[in-house]
Design a protein around this nucleic acid. Structure first.
Length: 1137
RNA sequence: GCCGGGGUGGCGAAAUUGGUAGACGCGUUCGACUUAAGAUCGAAUGUCCGAAAGGAUCUGUGGGUUCGAUUCCCACCCCCGGCACCA
């Protein structure tokens, strides 16, 4: 072929492939053959690309996302895999709705028109998508199953409603998505956006936080994506610690306690009850601890009746139930109608239906039908205490009880299993007023001198409400809290870097380690939604330190610095033991000027003041004076003061190995300039100079000296980890050793996450209606499966209603519905689902896109899941990938899918930027439209160029620059011309190059390095042009290598000789015997510099190579002695002279 | 601040158990063909010195290990992405 008419060729073959359904993935998928299954090889390959949003027009980025992975799809197919390469449209979302509002269009019409247009464009790329599997999320046949899956999660208890702040535009009277808020203002009307609380649907992704982190490990994903997900989830391990509160005002209403004992220790004289009673009474509380009737054979009705008859229960009562007493307490609550203060269940008895729970005789008489919702309304606060020593099934069971009561389970270790100890501090703590704090630094607990609460902290809300009167500065606190709540999160962060806060006067917290009183503060730098919304503050945190200094709150140091000196070979060798030493650090002031004595230890360039060892029982001050004299010669140093506590340094010394040195930092001033001669050895080792404060500051390069130096000028804060002192039994431990120990002793070990639950409510029209019904009688009821899908109703206009509800609230007829439970009047939910829900399972639908009975058939899913390779943009690294992983895990737990992870391998491709280097967007006006280029040069050229610009599997960004595209076009034209050289007989000289190319192109495609695969194809063609001839078999092998890149042109050239499509051909294999050339080039180096090269036979041995090399550079070697010769066969010879 | 990725010609880039740095392509220059332009073909092309032969030098900067470092180690600088008052 002489002329390359890309238009005709592409039109012809696209039509032909479509007509013959060339890329339809076999419906009845091949399972792995027995032999291949044994090797762990699958014949099916699910190659997934992120499906596009139908914005209306394809840009270069789409080509990059779809046409480049197509190369891999085609290659794998030729290599015998059954490849599914599906496509669809993520068709719900905001742009359609905005277009609808703007142009008074139906969003469905707008979307469908775009889909039709974009489908044509995608087809023009020559991709091998299987269109018969197309999935469109706004199709009721699809979203029926989105709704159904959502309901499965709801039924599993993963869905709940919660008051959540949303962006509210007061002028448009509508909820705004984050992307509609620009600099805190409404995108449309420019008015100030405010935060407003609304009931929103949430999904408990946080329940899966641990698994979402832990299951990342084995996945074949790039490290940066895994790290980014871990970072986003933000797990930190720490401890929750309770700080009891004490009040100045003693006149408020007091709780009273009713303690119900368990069964085994059959009375109120058993277990912890006498101790607890005494402890509470000592604090002035009234306590009732009745003996329940028939303890040896307890009966529910009798025990409950006894409690109701003999005990006083009022609104101040807190009922404490231990073991069976916990179950009794629940039944007591069923019988009373007035609210009580609290309910504390201590390891309550288990429902016998729980798997693994043993049947007890009294359960015959016990009715386990407990109305937790009613109890929740009756009780102001509740708590469930769990002893972790008990393990399963009690611990998971108590978790569900706590969940039903709407509280977090309090886990810890009782002093005896099941709280049978005589003294159980965990229980007492839960009964007294207290603040719970989360910390990752329990090691500083002994030094905690104040607490800081977030303005949103529930205890703060109680303390400033009308019913309570515990604060002596209530008005001041109230004003601060209200001001803080008005600020948005953004303002809080950016407003003023200076932290503000107000003390809560009239109340003190007690440090559980020391019993010391700690003031309470409220400050808006503490985040209400993280941890417990409260922190304890100490001297070893920069923020706490600064805040305490600002408000003059006392601090207490409990950490001595521990520093590891140096790096590299001089660093502390962590695996080897260390020798302990005592030493001094001395900072020496000039006798008359504001200057300091700077000493540099020359051999290692350590720079600071004077330092040296303390000999035996020597006094540190005397030792320091001795060292000053020895190192510097100055004779009259006067001791000024100690510079804080000791500083511990770990470092490595050539002489002694690992050292752990405990330095005493000291400040001296010279009395005069008297200076003796110093020893020659010292002179050689030390440089001495006088530096000003600023110079000295820049001079110091050892960390311990820097800490000592900082104390000369009074900065006391040591932020970081260190060694504990003034911390009771934990003295002398390092922070890392102490953190778990202190946490376990004074609190309980817990994990916290930055990840928040997934808010899936959208007050939007163009989305999947949330299939829920609100019944005034029955509450929130799920739409029955038989009524799915809940179709989107038609509405007149798509503007939100103005009440904060979605436009669906305008569809009156649609809104009214019978309650599926009671048949009474009810209303539909008007929120729609976040579109991330749609995209959390679309790849499952690809496996069985037309199924009317199920979201997908299990067997068909098994053929294709998990996804073998998922290619997409870096922008989906956290949100989409995390949400869909979570969704898949939830379905896995429900038994609906067979894998816990949806994607075996993930790669992020780079971004094609606009020609100006900016991100492509309509507002920038820099959207590169490839249509013209395709028109001029052809689809094959454009897709191949995109594959050529750089490695595909690296997150890089390329400004769209079509300058180089002509190179690819020239290459394809040369391929056309090369077809003229084809002879029947093979050209032997081309064989090594051809086989090398087969090898490299295959390897590079597998590694997603399409750019170097193409360069190898070019190298081969260059070789062909040099020979000006080519064998028919060689030509066809080359065409097959090229066919994934240029499917149209290669098909055309192939069909010059063949009847069937090149795209059903086998991938060529290389012959290792043909890889080697007869002779190879060896580089000759002298002292590592290349001086010449020499041709040697490929099979030459070391001696032969060396001989040849020596002969080649004989002239250069003349008169020089060769000290050493290094021969690297196949590469080089290096003569060292 | 924390986490991650990166820094190589005029440009996109290549090179990994440490072994000829700059493959392949774009661009540029010269030549052939042409009345001419374009297309095509051939040659050259990191930088500096040199007419040339040749020499020096070069993978962000500085240091180290090595016969030999883009590659390994240490320190630092810069760019990009993510998270960020997270206790």
């Amino acid at each position: 072929m002489k002329k390359y008419d890309h238009k005709a060729i592409e039109r012809k073959w696209q039509a032909r492939w479509k007509k013959t359904s060339l890329y339809k993935t076999p419906d009845k998928a091949k399972g792995p053959s027995a032999a291949k299954a044994k090797e762990g090889k699958k014949e099916n390959f699910h190659l997934l690309v992120e499906f596009p949003y139908p914005s209306g027009n394809l840009h270069v980025g789409h080509w990059y996302a779809f046409a480049v992975p197509d190369i891999l799809a085609r290659t794998l197919r030729m290599q015998g895999k059954n490849v599914m390469y599906p496509i669809g449209f993520d068709a719900f979302g905001l742009p359609a709705e905005n277009a609808a509002i703007k142009n008074k269009l139906n969003p469905r019409t707008w979307t469908e028109k775009n889909i039709a247009y974009m489908t044509k464009q995608i087809e023009s790329m020559g991709t091998s998508f299987d269109w018969s599997r197309k999935v469109v999320t706004c199709d009721p046949a699809y979203y029926k199953w989105t709704q159904w899956l959502f309901l499965q999660l709801f039924k599993k208890g993963l869905v709940y409603r919660k008051e959540t702040a949303v962006n509210w535009c007061p002028k448009d009277k509508t909820v705004l998505a984050n992307e509609q808020v620009v600099n805190g203002k409404c995108e449309r009307c420019d008015s100030e956006v405010v935060q407003r609380n609304m009931l929103q649907w949430n999904i408990k992704i946080t329940d899966y936080a641990d698994r979402l982190i832990d299951d990342l490990e084995p996945l074949d994903w790039p490290k940066e994506i895994k790290d980014s997900q871990r970072n986003w989830i933000g797990r930190s391990e720490g401890a929750e610690i309770n700080f009891p509160l004490e009040f100045e005002k003693k006149n408020g209403p007091k709780p009273n306690y009713l303690i119900l004992h368990g069964w085994y220790k059959d009375s109120a004289a058993g277990a912890f009850i006498p101790w607890l009673k005494k402890a509470l009474e000592e604090k002035g509380f009234e306590v009732q601890a009745p003996n329940l009737p028939n303890p040896e054979n307890p009966k529910e009705i009798k025990q409950v009746a006894d409690v109701l008859n003999t005990c006083t229960i009022d609104e101040h009562t807190i009922i404490v139930g231990h073991s069976l007493g916990g179950a009794v307490a629940l039944k007591v609550l069923e019988k009373i109608n007035r609210p009580i203060a609290g309910l504390v269940l201590v390891a309550p008895a288990m429902n016998p239906s729980v798997q693994g729970a043993k049947k007890r005789p009294f359960w015959k008489h016990f009715n386990w039908d407990i109305d937790y919702e009613r109890i929740k309304k009756l009780v102001r606060f509740s708590a469930v205490l769990c002893d972790l020593q008990e393990g399963a099934p009690r611990v998971p069971y108590l978790k569900t009880v706590a969940q039903k009561l709407g509280v977090a389970l309090i886990e810890g270790n009782a002093s005896e299993e099941h709280f049978f100890g005589k003294e159980e501090p965990m229980i007492l703590m839960s009964l007294l007023p207290h603040i719970t704090v989360f910390t990752t630094r329990a090691d500083t607990l002994f030094g905690g001198t104040y607490l800081v609460l977030a303005p949103e902290h529930p205890w703060v809300a109680l303390a400033i409400d009308d019913k309570h009167d515990v604060l002596t500065n209530k008005a001041e606190v109230k004003a601060y809290v209200e001001k803080a709540k008005k600020k948005t999160e953004l303002e809080r962060q950016t407003d003023d870097k200076e932290k503000t806060g107000v003390e809560l006067k009239g109340v003190k917290a007690i440090n559980p380690t020391t019993g010391a009183e700690m003031p309470l503060w409220v400050a808006d730098f503490v985040i209400g939604s993280y941890g417990t919304g409260a922190v304890f503050a100490d001297a070893h945190d920069e923020r706490d330190y600064a805040f305490a200094k600002k408000y003059d709150i006392p601090l207490k140091e409990t950490l001595e610095p521990v520093v590891v000196q140096g790096a590299g070979p001089d660093a502390f060798h962590t695996k080897e033991p260390a020798i302990d030493r005592s030493s001094i650090l001395a900072i020496v002031k000039h006798w008359s000027e504001e200057k300091y004595l700077a000493v540099r230890f020359k051999p290692t360039d350590v720079r600071g003041g004077v330092s040296g060892g303390v000999d035996g029982a020597e006094d540190p001050i005397a030792a320091a004076k001795r060292e000053i004299a020895e190192e510097t010669g100055y004779e009259h140093a006067r001791f000024i003061r100690k510079l804080g506590g000791p500083i511990h340094s770990k470092y490595y010394s050539q002489k002694y190995g690992n050292l752990f040195v405990h330095f005493t930092p000291l400040l001296f001033q010279l009395e005069d300039e008297a200076r003796a001669e110093i020893s020659p050895k010292e002179k050689e080792e030390h440089d001495i100079s006088w530096l000003t404060k600023e110079e000295f500051d820049a001079f110091i390069n050892r960390e311990d000296m820097r800490i000592a130096w900082s104390r000369v000028h009074g900065e006391m804060c040591y932020a970081g980890k260190g060694m504990l002192f003034d911390s009771g039994e934990f003295n002398g431990l390092t922070s890392d050793e102490a953190i778990p120990k202190v946490g376990a002793k004074f609190g309980r070990v817990v994990k916290q996450y930055h990840l928040r639950d997934w808010i899936i409510s959208r007050q939007r029209y163009w989305g999947v209606p949330i299939p829920m019904i609100h019944c005034p009688k029955c509450g929130v009821v799920a739409v029955p499966d038989k009524d799915l899908p809940v179709k989107l109703p038609e509405v007149k206009d798509y503007l939100p209603e103005g009440t904060g509800k979605s436009p669906l609230a305008k569809a009156r007829k649609w809104l009214d519905i019978q309650c599926p439970v009671c048949g009474g009047k009810a209303e539909r939910e008007t929120d729609t689902l976040d579109t991330f829900v749609d995209s959390s399972w679309y790849f499952l639908r690809y496996t069985d896109p037309k199924n009317k009975k199920k979201f997908a058939d299990a067997k068909k899913m098994a053929n294709w899941m998990p996804v073998d390779l998922y290619s997409g943009g870096a922008e989906h690294t956290t949100m989409h990938l995390l949400y869909s992983r979570f969704w898949h895990k939830a379905l896995f737990d429900l038994g609906l899918v067979k894998d816990a992870e949806p994607y075996l391998r993930r790669m992020n491709h780079g971004v094609i930027l606009g020609p100006d280097g900016q991100k492509m967007s309509k507002s920038h006006g820099n959207v590169a439209d490839p249509d013209k280029l395709v028109e001029q040069l052809g689809a094959d050229t454009v897709r191949m160029y995109l594959a050529f610009i750089g490695p595909y599997n690296e997150v890089a960004s390329y400004p769209w620059n079509p300058d180089g595209v002509v190179g690819i076009r020239r290459f394809l034209e040369r391929v056309c011309r090369a077809s003229e050289y084809v002879n029947p007989a093979s050209v032997a000289a081309l064989d090594p190059l051809l086989h090398k190319s087969i090898k490299k192109v295959g390897e590079d495609i597998a590694a997603l390095k399409f750019n170097t695969a193409i360069s190898q194809l070019m190298i081969f063609l260059n070789g062909v042009e040099k020979e000006k001839k080519l064998g028919k078999t060689q030509w066809e092998q080359f065409l097959r290598l090229l066919s994934p890149f240029a499917p149209h042109l290669t098909e055309e050239l192939w069909r010059e000789r063949r009847k069937t499509s090149i795209h059903v051909e086998q991938w060529p294999t290389f012959d290792p015997a043909k890889l080697v050339n007869e002779s190879i080039t060896i580089a000759i180096q002298i002292n590592g510099k290349v001086r010449a090269d020499v041709q040697v036979p490929a099979d030459a041995d070391k001696e032969a190579i060396e001989k040849a090399a020596r002969a080649t550079v004989a002239a250069r070697l003349e008169g020089k002695e060769i000290l050493r010769t290094i021969v690297v066969p196949g590469r080089l010879v290096n003569f060292v002279v």
